[in-house]
Design a protein around this nucleic acid. Structure first.
Lengths: 206, 206
DNA sequence: TAGGAAATGAGAGTTACTCTCATTTCATGG
DNA sequence: CCATGAAATGAGAGTAACTCTCATTTCCTA
Protein backbone atom coordinates (compact mmCIF):
# COMPACT_ATOMS: atom_id res chain seq x y z
CA UNK A 1 0.00 0.00 0.00
CA UNK A 2 1.33 3.35 -0.96
CA UNK A 3 0.09 4.63 2.31
CA UNK A 4 3.13 3.04 3.81
CA UNK A 5 5.85 4.49 1.68
CA UNK A 6 6.18 1.09 0.22
CA UNK A 7 8.64 0.06 -2.39
CA UNK A 8 8.47 1.36 -5.88
CA UNK A 9 10.26 -1.59 -7.33
CA UNK A 10 8.74 -3.42 -10.20
CA UNK A 11 6.62 -6.56 -9.93
CA UNK A 12 8.08 -9.87 -10.80
CA UNK A 13 8.99 -12.15 -13.63
CA UNK A 14 6.13 -13.22 -15.86
CA UNK A 15 8.48 -14.21 -18.69
CA UNK A 16 12.03 -13.07 -18.84
CA UNK A 17 12.34 -12.24 -22.49
CA UNK A 18 14.23 -9.24 -23.72
CA UNK A 19 10.93 -7.53 -24.07
CA UNK A 20 10.03 -7.84 -20.42
CA UNK A 21 13.43 -6.77 -19.27
CA UNK A 22 13.22 -3.70 -21.42
CA UNK A 23 9.86 -2.83 -20.02
CA UNK A 24 11.13 -3.05 -16.51
CA UNK A 25 14.06 -0.90 -17.44
CA UNK A 26 11.85 1.72 -19.00
CA UNK A 27 9.61 1.69 -16.01
CA UNK A 28 12.37 2.29 -13.54
CA UNK A 29 14.04 4.77 -15.86
CA UNK A 30 10.87 6.84 -15.84
CA UNK A 31 10.57 6.60 -12.12
CA UNK A 32 14.14 7.48 -11.44
CA UNK A 33 14.02 10.41 -13.80
CA UNK A 34 10.93 11.57 -12.01
CA UNK A 35 12.48 11.37 -8.59
CA UNK A 36 15.60 13.13 -9.76
CA UNK A 37 13.69 15.97 -11.36
CA UNK A 38 11.37 16.38 -8.42
CA UNK A 39 14.24 16.57 -6.00
CA UNK A 40 15.80 19.26 -8.14
CA UNK A 41 12.77 21.32 -9.07
CA UNK A 42 9.83 20.23 -6.99
CA UNK A 43 6.75 18.34 -8.03
CA UNK A 44 4.69 20.97 -9.77
CA UNK A 45 7.57 22.40 -11.71
CA UNK A 46 8.34 19.01 -13.16
CA UNK A 47 6.40 18.29 -16.32
CA UNK A 48 5.77 14.95 -17.92
CA UNK A 49 7.58 16.20 -20.97
CA UNK A 50 10.71 16.76 -18.93
CA UNK A 51 10.36 13.37 -17.36
CA UNK A 52 10.02 11.78 -20.76
CA UNK A 53 13.04 13.57 -22.10
CA UNK A 54 15.13 12.73 -19.09
CA UNK A 55 14.11 9.08 -19.25
CA UNK A 56 14.69 9.08 -22.99
CA UNK A 57 11.23 8.00 -23.99
CA UNK A 58 8.33 9.82 -25.54
CA UNK A 59 5.60 11.40 -23.45
CA UNK A 60 3.19 8.87 -24.90
CA UNK A 61 5.25 6.11 -23.40
CA UNK A 62 5.23 7.69 -19.99
CA UNK A 63 1.47 7.58 -20.02
CA UNK A 64 1.49 4.03 -21.22
CA UNK A 65 3.43 3.04 -18.14
CA UNK A 66 1.69 5.24 -15.62
CA UNK A 67 -1.89 6.42 -15.88
CA UNK A 68 -1.19 9.70 -14.12
CA UNK A 69 1.77 11.74 -13.05
CA UNK A 70 1.02 11.06 -9.42
CA UNK A 71 1.17 7.36 -10.05
CA UNK A 72 4.77 7.59 -11.13
CA UNK A 73 5.59 8.59 -7.62
CA UNK A 74 3.08 6.45 -5.85
CA UNK A 75 2.72 3.13 -7.52
CA UNK A 76 3.88 0.42 -5.27
CA UNK A 77 3.69 -3.27 -5.05
CA UNK A 78 3.37 -3.78 -1.37
CA UNK A 79 -0.27 -4.75 -1.56
CA UNK A 80 0.38 -8.23 -2.96
CA UNK A 81 3.09 -8.80 -0.37
CA UNK A 82 0.77 -7.65 2.34
CA UNK A 83 -1.99 -9.94 1.20
CA UNK A 84 0.29 -12.93 0.86
CA UNK A 85 1.85 -12.40 4.25
CA UNK A 86 -1.48 -11.87 5.92
CA UNK A 87 -2.83 -15.07 4.47
CA UNK A 88 0.21 -16.96 5.62
CA UNK A 89 -0.59 -16.17 9.23
CA UNK A 90 -2.64 -18.63 11.31
CA UNK A 91 -6.32 -18.10 10.65
CA UNK A 92 -7.25 -18.00 14.30
CA UNK A 93 -4.96 -15.09 15.01
CA UNK A 94 -6.75 -11.79 15.27
CA UNK A 95 -6.31 -9.68 12.18
CA UNK A 96 -4.69 -6.89 14.05
CA UNK A 97 -2.12 -9.23 15.52
CA UNK A 98 -1.45 -10.64 12.10
CA UNK A 99 -0.91 -7.14 10.87
CA UNK A 100 1.55 -6.47 13.64
CA UNK A 101 3.54 -9.52 12.71
CA UNK A 102 3.48 -8.73 9.02
CA UNK A 103 4.62 -5.18 9.62
CA UNK A 104 7.34 -6.47 11.84
CA UNK A 105 8.51 -8.99 9.29
CA UNK A 106 8.00 -7.22 6.01
CA UNK A 107 8.02 -3.50 6.44
CA UNK A 108 11.74 -3.39 5.86
CA UNK A 109 11.16 -5.05 2.52
CA UNK A 110 9.14 -2.08 1.48
CA UNK A 111 11.48 0.49 2.86
CA UNK A 112 14.79 -0.94 1.91
CA UNK A 113 14.09 -2.07 -1.58
CA UNK A 114 15.03 1.32 -2.85
CA UNK A 115 17.14 4.24 -1.87
CA UNK A 116 16.06 5.40 1.57
CA UNK A 117 16.11 8.92 0.23
CA UNK A 118 13.44 7.91 -2.23
CA UNK A 119 11.24 6.49 0.51
CA UNK A 120 11.53 9.72 2.33
CA UNK A 121 10.87 11.79 -0.75
CA UNK A 122 7.80 9.76 -1.47
CA UNK A 123 6.31 10.10 1.98
CA UNK A 124 7.10 13.79 1.96
CA UNK A 125 5.25 14.23 -1.30
CA UNK A 126 2.31 12.33 0.14
CA UNK A 127 2.09 14.94 2.82
CA UNK A 128 2.91 18.02 0.80
CA UNK A 129 1.47 17.67 -2.67
CA UNK A 130 -2.31 17.62 -2.69
CA UNK A 131 -2.56 15.64 -5.90
CA UNK A 132 -0.28 12.97 -4.56
CA UNK A 133 -2.07 12.84 -1.29
CA UNK A 134 -5.44 12.32 -2.82
CA UNK A 135 -4.07 9.69 -5.11
CA UNK A 136 -2.64 7.98 -2.08
CA UNK A 137 -5.97 8.07 -0.37
CA UNK A 138 -7.47 6.51 -3.44
CA UNK A 139 -5.03 3.70 -3.14
CA UNK A 140 -5.93 3.44 0.49
CA UNK A 141 -9.34 2.26 -0.48
CA UNK A 142 -7.76 -0.39 -2.67
CA UNK A 143 -5.75 -1.64 0.26
CA UNK A 144 -8.91 -1.44 2.28
CA UNK A 145 -10.63 -3.78 -0.15
CA UNK A 146 -7.77 -6.19 0.18
CA UNK A 147 -8.15 -6.07 3.92
CA UNK A 148 -11.86 -6.69 3.60
CA UNK A 149 -11.24 -9.83 1.60
CA UNK A 150 -8.84 -11.14 4.19
CA UNK A 151 -11.30 -10.45 6.96
CA UNK A 152 -14.06 -12.07 4.96
CA UNK A 153 -12.06 -15.21 4.43
CA UNK A 154 -11.12 -15.45 8.06
CA UNK A 155 -14.44 -14.71 9.64
CA UNK A 156 -16.88 -15.93 7.07
CA UNK A 157 -18.49 -12.54 6.94
CA UNK A 158 -19.21 -10.82 3.69
CA UNK A 159 -16.41 -8.59 2.43
CA UNK A 160 -18.99 -5.93 1.67
CA UNK A 161 -20.39 -5.77 5.18
CA UNK A 162 -20.45 -2.29 6.57
CA UNK A 163 -18.73 -3.42 9.75
CA UNK A 164 -16.00 -5.17 7.84
CA UNK A 165 -15.37 -2.17 5.69
CA UNK A 166 -15.27 0.22 8.60
CA UNK A 167 -12.81 -1.93 10.44
CA UNK A 168 -10.60 -2.35 7.41
CA UNK A 169 -10.66 1.37 6.80
CA UNK A 170 -9.64 2.00 10.39
CA UNK A 171 -6.66 -0.30 10.06
CA UNK A 172 -5.49 1.05 6.75
CA UNK A 173 -6.11 4.60 7.86
CA UNK A 174 -4.07 3.99 10.96
CA UNK A 175 -1.11 2.79 8.96
CA UNK A 176 -1.41 5.75 6.68
CA UNK A 177 -1.55 8.22 9.52
CA UNK A 178 1.55 6.64 10.99
CA UNK A 179 3.35 7.12 7.70
CA UNK A 180 2.28 10.71 7.39
CA UNK A 181 3.23 11.40 10.96
CA UNK A 182 6.64 9.97 10.22
CA UNK A 183 7.10 12.24 7.22
CA UNK A 184 5.85 15.29 9.05
CA UNK A 185 8.38 14.70 11.78
CA UNK A 186 11.30 14.49 9.39
CA UNK A 187 11.38 10.71 9.45
CA UNK A 188 12.74 10.60 12.94
CA UNK A 189 12.43 7.30 14.74
CA UNK A 190 11.25 4.02 13.36
CA UNK A 191 8.21 3.86 11.15
CA UNK A 192 7.55 0.44 12.57
CA UNK A 193 7.10 1.81 16.07
CA UNK A 194 4.70 4.46 14.87
CA UNK A 195 2.63 1.87 13.06
CA UNK A 196 2.46 -0.21 16.21
CA UNK A 197 1.24 2.74 18.21
CA UNK A 198 -1.36 3.46 15.56
CA UNK A 199 -2.61 -0.10 15.63
CA UNK A 200 -2.80 0.00 19.40
CA UNK A 201 -5.02 3.02 19.13
CA UNK A 202 -7.36 1.25 16.75
CA UNK A 203 -7.56 -1.64 19.15
CA UNK A 204 -7.97 0.17 22.43
CA UNK A 205 -9.22 3.59 21.53
CA UNK A 206 -7.66 6.69 22.97
CA UNK B 1 -17.90 17.01 5.95
CA UNK B 2 -18.55 16.11 2.41
CA UNK B 3 -18.08 12.52 3.38
CA UNK B 4 -21.55 12.64 4.71
CA UNK B 5 -23.41 13.89 1.72
CA UNK B 6 -23.77 17.11 3.54
CA UNK B 7 -25.63 20.12 2.37
CA UNK B 8 -24.43 22.18 -0.51
CA UNK B 9 -26.19 25.28 0.63
CA UNK B 10 -24.30 28.50 0.79
CA UNK B 11 -22.62 29.86 3.93
CA UNK B 12 -24.27 32.68 5.78
CA UNK B 13 -24.77 36.41 5.89
CA UNK B 14 -21.64 38.49 6.25
CA UNK B 15 -23.29 41.68 4.95
CA UNK B 16 -26.50 41.65 3.07
CA UNK B 17 -25.78 44.13 0.36
CA UNK B 18 -26.88 43.62 -3.20
CA UNK B 19 -23.39 42.44 -3.94
CA UNK B 20 -23.50 39.60 -1.45
CA UNK B 21 -26.89 38.48 -2.55
CA UNK B 22 -25.76 38.38 -6.12
CA UNK B 23 -22.76 36.31 -5.20
CA UNK B 24 -24.88 33.79 -3.44
CA UNK B 25 -27.18 33.65 -6.40
CA UNK B 26 -24.32 33.06 -8.78
CA UNK B 27 -22.92 30.38 -6.57
CA UNK B 28 -26.10 28.41 -6.42
CA UNK B 29 -26.79 29.03 -10.08
CA UNK B 30 -23.50 27.38 -10.90
CA UNK B 31 -24.18 24.52 -8.62
CA UNK B 32 -27.64 23.91 -9.89
CA UNK B 33 -26.53 24.07 -13.47
CA UNK B 34 -23.86 21.55 -12.63
CA UNK B 35 -26.26 19.13 -11.01
CA UNK B 36 -28.68 19.45 -13.86
CA UNK B 37 -26.08 18.80 -16.51
CA UNK B 38 -24.54 15.91 -14.66
CA UNK B 39 -27.88 14.23 -14.23
CA UNK B 40 -28.47 14.58 -17.94
CA UNK B 41 -25.06 13.72 -19.30
CA UNK B 42 -22.92 12.33 -16.55
CA UNK B 43 -19.97 13.86 -14.81
CA UNK B 44 -17.20 13.46 -17.34
CA UNK B 45 -19.26 14.55 -20.28
CA UNK B 46 -20.10 17.79 -18.54
CA UNK B 47 -17.53 20.49 -19.20
CA UNK B 48 -16.97 23.63 -17.23
CA UNK B 49 -17.78 25.58 -20.34
CA UNK B 50 -21.20 24.02 -20.48
CA UNK B 51 -21.71 24.70 -16.83
CA UNK B 52 -20.74 28.33 -17.33
CA UNK B 53 -23.06 28.72 -20.25
CA UNK B 54 -25.93 27.07 -18.47
CA UNK B 55 -25.40 29.21 -15.38
CA UNK B 56 -25.04 32.30 -17.58
CA UNK B 57 -21.61 33.27 -16.38
CA UNK B 58 -18.20 33.08 -17.92
CA UNK B 59 -15.90 30.12 -17.35
CA UNK B 60 -13.57 32.46 -15.48
CA UNK B 61 -16.30 33.15 -13.01
CA UNK B 62 -16.92 29.48 -12.41
CA UNK B 63 -13.33 29.08 -11.34
CA UNK B 64 -13.53 32.15 -9.18
CA UNK B 65 -16.29 30.51 -7.23
CA UNK B 66 -14.97 26.97 -7.14
CA UNK B 67 -11.32 26.00 -7.30
CA UNK B 68 -12.00 22.77 -9.14
CA UNK B 69 -14.82 21.10 -10.96
CA UNK B 70 -15.11 18.48 -8.24
CA UNK B 71 -15.61 21.17 -5.68
CA UNK B 72 -18.75 22.37 -7.38
CA UNK B 73 -20.27 19.07 -6.49
CA UNK B 74 -18.62 18.53 -3.17
CA UNK B 75 -18.32 21.76 -1.28
CA UNK B 76 -20.28 21.61 1.84
CA UNK B 77 -20.66 23.51 4.98
CA UNK B 78 -21.34 20.75 7.43
CA UNK B 79 -17.94 20.99 9.07
CA UNK B 80 -18.67 24.19 10.98
CA UNK B 81 -22.01 22.79 12.10
CA UNK B 82 -20.31 19.62 13.20
CA UNK B 83 -17.70 21.49 15.16
CA UNK B 84 -20.19 23.78 16.82
CA UNK B 85 -22.47 20.95 17.80
CA UNK B 86 -19.63 18.83 19.10
CA UNK B 87 -18.41 21.67 21.26
CA UNK B 88 -21.85 22.24 22.63
CA UNK B 89 -21.87 18.75 24.11
CA UNK B 90 -20.78 18.21 27.71
CA UNK B 91 -17.01 17.94 27.86
CA UNK B 92 -17.02 14.82 29.96
CA UNK B 93 -19.04 12.88 27.42
CA UNK B 94 -16.93 10.53 25.33
CA UNK B 95 -16.29 11.88 21.89
CA UNK B 96 -17.94 8.98 20.20
CA UNK B 97 -21.10 9.48 22.22
CA UNK B 98 -21.05 13.14 21.37
CA UNK B 99 -20.79 12.21 17.75
CA UNK B 100 -23.76 9.90 18.06
CA UNK B 101 -25.84 12.67 19.51
CA UNK B 102 -24.74 15.19 16.95
CA UNK B 103 -25.49 12.83 14.10
CA UNK B 104 -28.83 12.14 15.61
CA UNK B 105 -29.65 15.80 15.99
CA UNK B 106 -28.10 17.37 12.96
CA UNK B 107 -27.72 14.89 10.17
CA UNK B 108 -31.11 15.80 8.82
CA UNK B 109 -29.95 19.38 8.52
CA UNK B 110 -27.34 18.27 6.09
CA UNK B 111 -29.60 15.97 4.16
CA UNK B 112 -32.71 18.01 3.97
CA UNK B 113 -31.31 21.39 3.19
CA UNK B 114 -31.44 20.59 -0.46
CA UNK B 115 -33.32 18.41 -2.84
CA UNK B 116 -33.01 14.81 -1.65
CA UNK B 117 -32.24 13.89 -5.22
CA UNK B 118 -29.20 16.12 -5.05
CA UNK B 119 -27.98 14.43 -1.89
CA UNK B 120 -28.27 11.11 -3.60
CA UNK B 121 -26.59 12.33 -6.73
CA UNK B 122 -23.74 13.68 -4.70
CA UNK B 123 -23.15 10.51 -2.74
CA UNK B 124 -23.37 8.51 -5.92
CA UNK B 125 -20.74 10.64 -7.56
CA UNK B 126 -18.55 10.19 -4.52
CA UNK B 127 -18.66 6.49 -5.13
CA UNK B 128 -18.53 6.46 -8.90
CA UNK B 129 -16.33 9.27 -10.08
CA UNK B 130 -12.70 8.84 -9.09
CA UNK B 131 -11.92 12.53 -9.15
CA UNK B 132 -14.82 13.30 -6.86
CA UNK B 133 -13.95 10.48 -4.54
CA UNK B 134 -10.40 11.60 -4.07
CA UNK B 135 -11.52 15.13 -3.52
CA UNK B 136 -13.87 13.83 -0.88
CA UNK B 137 -11.09 11.96 0.79
CA UNK B 138 -9.07 15.13 0.82
CA UNK B 139 -11.88 16.83 2.62
CA UNK B 140 -11.96 13.88 4.98
CA UNK B 141 -8.60 14.89 6.28
CA UNK B 142 -9.89 18.39 6.87
CA UNK B 143 -12.73 17.00 8.92
CA UNK B 144 -10.18 14.82 10.64
CA UNK B 145 -8.23 17.89 11.66
CA UNK B 146 -11.37 19.39 13.07
CA UNK B 147 -11.95 16.23 15.06
CA UNK B 148 -8.39 16.36 16.33
CA UNK B 149 -8.90 19.85 17.63
CA UNK B 150 -12.03 18.85 19.46
CA UNK B 151 -10.27 15.87 20.99
CA UNK B 152 -7.34 18.04 21.95
CA UNK B 153 -9.55 20.55 23.69
CA UNK B 154 -11.39 17.88 25.57
CA UNK B 155 -8.52 15.73 26.69
CA UNK B 156 -5.69 18.20 26.91
CA UNK B 157 -3.66 16.12 24.51
CA UNK B 158 -1.91 17.66 21.57
CA UNK B 159 -3.98 17.77 18.40
CA UNK B 160 -0.97 16.51 16.51
CA UNK B 161 -0.49 13.38 18.59
CA UNK B 162 -0.33 10.26 16.56
CA UNK B 163 -2.92 8.58 18.72
CA UNK B 164 -5.30 11.48 18.41
CA UNK B 165 -4.93 11.58 14.67
CA UNK B 166 -5.46 7.88 14.28
CA UNK B 167 -8.57 7.95 16.36
CA UNK B 168 -9.97 10.94 14.53
CA UNK B 169 -9.26 9.30 11.21
CA UNK B 170 -11.07 6.18 12.35
CA UNK B 171 -14.15 8.16 13.27
CA UNK B 172 -14.25 10.23 10.12
CA UNK B 173 -13.46 7.22 8.00
CA UNK B 174 -16.28 5.32 9.62
CA UNK B 175 -18.77 8.03 8.75
CA UNK B 176 -17.50 8.13 5.24
CA UNK B 177 -17.76 4.40 4.80
CA UNK B 178 -21.29 4.55 6.05
CA UNK B 179 -22.12 7.18 3.48
CA UNK B 180 -20.55 5.23 0.68
CA UNK B 181 -22.27 2.07 1.77
CA UNK B 182 -25.54 3.95 1.66
CA UNK B 183 -24.92 5.13 -1.87
CA UNK B 184 -23.77 1.73 -3.05
CA UNK B 185 -26.96 0.20 -1.77
CA UNK B 186 -29.18 2.63 -3.61
CA UNK B 187 -29.78 4.77 -0.56
CA UNK B 188 -31.98 2.20 1.05
CA UNK B 189 -32.57 2.58 4.73
CA UNK B 190 -31.55 5.43 6.95
CA UNK B 191 -28.08 6.89 6.68
CA UNK B 192 -28.28 7.62 10.36
CA UNK B 193 -28.58 3.95 11.23
CA UNK B 194 -25.60 3.07 9.08
CA UNK B 195 -23.50 5.73 10.72
CA UNK B 196 -24.43 4.37 14.12
CA UNK B 197 -23.36 0.88 13.13
CA UNK B 198 -20.11 2.26 11.80
CA UNK B 199 -19.41 4.10 15.03
CA UNK B 200 -20.16 0.96 16.99
CA UNK B 201 -17.57 -0.86 14.99
CA UNK B 202 -14.96 1.75 15.74
CA UNK B 203 -15.77 1.46 19.40
CA UNK B 204 -15.99 -2.28 19.79
CA UNK B 205 -14.10 -3.69 16.87
CA UNK B 206 -15.54 -6.39 14.73
C1' DT C 1 14.13 -15.81 -41.62
C1' DA C 2 9.35 -14.28 -42.39
C1' DG C 3 5.10 -12.98 -40.31
C1' DG C 4 2.66 -11.23 -36.54
C1' DA C 5 2.25 -9.05 -32.27
C1' DA C 6 3.77 -5.84 -29.01
C1' DA C 7 5.95 -1.54 -27.93
C1' DT C 8 7.04 3.01 -29.29
C1' DG C 9 6.82 7.66 -31.37
C1' DA C 10 4.62 11.52 -33.45
C1' DG C 11 1.10 14.58 -33.49
C1' DA C 12 -3.32 16.48 -33.03
C1' DG C 13 -7.12 17.27 -29.86
C1' DT C 14 -9.59 17.99 -25.38
C1' DT C 15 -10.18 20.09 -21.02
C1' DA C 16 -9.28 21.72 -16.55
C1' DC C 17 -7.18 25.37 -14.71
C1' DT C 18 -4.17 30.01 -14.41
C1' DC C 19 -3.05 34.89 -15.34
C1' DT C 20 -3.63 39.27 -17.01
C1' DC C 21 -6.04 43.16 -18.28
C1' DA C 22 -9.97 45.80 -19.66
C1' DT C 23 -14.82 46.63 -18.44
C1' DT C 24 -18.76 46.66 -15.78
C1' DT C 25 -21.22 46.88 -11.39
C1' DC C 26 -21.91 48.18 -6.89
C1' DA C 27 -20.82 50.82 -2.42
C1' DT C 28 -20.13 55.25 -0.19
C1' DG C 29 -18.63 59.79 1.38
C1' DG C 30 -19.15 64.40 0.10
C1' DC D 1 -27.13 62.30 -6.21
C1' DC D 2 -22.99 61.78 -8.15
C1' DA D 3 -18.03 60.90 -8.30
C1' DT D 4 -14.42 57.96 -6.84
C1' DG D 5 -12.70 53.64 -5.53
C1' DA D 6 -13.25 48.83 -4.95
C1' DA D 7 -15.12 44.51 -6.12
C1' DA D 8 -16.88 41.40 -9.56
C1' DT D 9 -16.94 39.92 -14.20
C1' DG D 10 -15.54 38.84 -18.98
C1' DA D 11 -12.38 37.96 -22.61
C1' DG D 12 -8.53 35.81 -24.18
C1' DA D 13 -4.18 33.74 -24.24
C1' DG D 14 -1.41 30.18 -22.20
C1' DT D 15 -0.05 25.74 -19.79
C1' DA D 16 0.01 21.00 -18.91
C1' DA D 17 -2.08 16.65 -18.12
C1' DC D 18 -4.06 13.48 -20.29
C1' DT D 19 -6.43 10.76 -24.74
C1' DC D 20 -6.65 8.79 -29.44
C1' DT D 21 -5.03 7.49 -33.71
C1' DC D 22 -1.89 5.84 -36.86
C1' DA D 23 2.54 4.84 -38.71
C1' DT D 24 7.00 2.71 -37.47
C1' DT D 25 10.13 0.06 -35.04
C1' DT D 26 11.35 -3.88 -32.14
C1' DC D 27 11.06 -8.29 -30.60
C1' DC D 28 9.20 -13.06 -30.44
C1' DT D 29 8.17 -17.49 -32.61
C1' DA D 30 7.08 -20.85 -35.84
Amino acid sequence: MSAMAASAQTPAEPKVGLRERKKIKTRTAIREATYRLIMEQGYDATTVEQIAESAEVSPSTVFRYFPTKEDIVLTDEFDPILERELRSRPADESLIDSLRHVIDDSLHLALESDDPEVSRLRTRLQVEVPAVRSRMMESMSVTGDLMCRVIADRTGRDAGDLEVRVYAMALVGAMMEATMYWAQHDHEGELRDLVMRALDTVQHGL
